[in-house]
Amino acid sequence: MGHSFLSLLSRMGPASLVATDEQAMWRVKMNDDPQAFARLVERWEKPIQRLCTRMTGSSHQGEDLAQETFTRLFTRRKSYEPSGRFSTFLWRIALNLCYDELRKTNRRREFFLDETDRGLADGPDEFITEEPAPDHVLADRERAATVRRALLELAEPYRVVVVLRHYEGLKFRQIADVLAIPEGTVKSRMVEALNQLNRLLSHTLQEGEICKTQTKKPKASLAI
């Protein structure tokens, strides 16, 4: 879907010579340059999709949220300030959408009051296959599912730090900018997240089931 979008955009005009994401975004802001926008989508589509998938635990939601992120990026192009990094602006849009989606999912879950209806976030959709698999592939798949569930057990402020640092490779300083919190707080949250994950994963691997933590999940949103 994203590739069709890109190919359509790429046919819309001559190639724009933009060196950085910030310059491309400036062109989008000032001239509605479709070529520059296509460049940004191409560059950031996968990272944003990965972020949304890890935050929600669902690849389908990840794809939808990534599309929504770029739609929102375009509609809010006028509010982009070139003094800041483009990536920070984009990560914030994506994270706010993830927070909104997670809140909706939580509300639905509370409404139905059904522990078996864990929504998309707990569905095994990432790992289903009809084809028989060797034992070690099944074991890897099971481990991945366990990690995914453990990550979803973390409160959002901890989960986002793990996703941005461990999976997306952002430096602690960059994460602090995106979340608008001190760098020391980011590191503290990372320590706490790893400690909680250690408890969840070791318990799961030993007992074969996830230990449900009673962590408070505060509302989160980022100023864009």
Binding site: R50, S59, L151, L197
Partner: peptide, 18 residues
């Protein structure tokens, strides 16, 4: 070592290729 083990466990979740 405990943190490293947890980090290694995190690597087990690889996103599937569409």
């Amino acid at each position: 070592a405990q943190w490293q083990a947890t980090m290694k466990n995190l690597d087990a979740w690889k996103l599937p290729v569409a």
